[in-house]
Design a protein around this nucleic acid. Structure first.
Lengths: 151, 151
DNA sequence: ATATCTGCAAAGACTTTGCATGAGA
DNA sequence: TCTCATGCAAAGTCTTTGCAGATAT
């Protein structure tokens, strides 16, 4: 379940084509472990394929989000951020602490067993209750970070 | 801890002034139980105070978010949405199921005791671990809703 | 009195769209 | 071949900013 083969089948399944721009974007996303903006992805892709335009980045990302391959985030800085999706147990999965004052985003992924189990069982429960196929989740805690506490 | 008096003290505490536009915006937010966009708030406020401009709505909302009085959401529809904050136990508190395909947002607030307790203890834990004062949280589950499952 | 806040209009920033060309299956 | 996808540029939307006048304490 990794590599271009997987992407290919996934696209076929949705009736889409696996093109160079789409591969390039997935390549960049899988190399990075940060939340990338559309423009950051564009700049990376541009290094290797200068002819690929920003509009294609946006169109592709929208597609990938729909397909559940990519997650879209908003941290309130005015631009959307993207990250390769993976099930909630994946090593890169994390939750966020966001400071309402300075906007800083802190990731944490040192989940306790309890936290992991809780979300797994909650997802199963909700899937049934709402007949909703859950692919992923986002958890954000808002408040005041240590640096901003001293007003 | 309700009514204008409370707002007044809260503003004083931050060194801000409680003005007519700010009161009007808080008034609208406390009457509504939906996620309002800046423009929706503007239109409501405009009914009573036609002279208040949209820029003031944006500036005030940003302030209220910083103060932790208001929560800002993004559901991927291109505009931010706002809601009066309250602690996680409040009756209006809810989590979200968001469809990656059609963008529909389903709120749920029929939390189990286990779910409530879990988030409370997780917040206490994180506050300590990261020296971060948690005011609120957002939980979103992404996937495919019942209507979109039939492709 | 005076630092803060607001209205208006203009600018800014991110994202989307139209259309002719190019490319996958 | 025949859709589907892309590039470019232009347009669209939401949001922010500058500044002079108004306001809260």
């Amino acid at each position: 379940m990794m590599g271009p083969h997987w992407w290919y089948n996934r696209f076929r399944g949705w009736g889409y084509r696996l093109t160079i721009p789409r591969q390039a974007i997935l390549e960049i996303l899988s190399k990075s472990d940060k939340h990338l903006s559309a423009e950051e992805i564009y700049l990376e892709v541009h290094k290797e394929y200068p002819s690929i335009g920003l509009a294609t980045i946006y169109r592709t990302l929208e597609l990938l989000v729909q397909m559940g391959i990519v997650n879209k985030f908003d941290f309130g800085d005015g631009r959307a951020r993207y990250e390769l999706a993976e099930d909630s147990k994946g090593p890169k999965h994390h939750h966020h602490l966001i400071c309402n004052v300075c906007g800083r985003v802190i990731d944490y992924r040192d989940f306790s067993e309890e936290e992991k189990n809780f979300f797994e069982s909650l997802e199963r429960n909700l899937s049934q209750r709402y007949n909703f196929e859950i692919k992923n989740h986002q958890v954000m805690f808002y408040g005041i970070c240590d640096k901003c506490k001293g007003k």
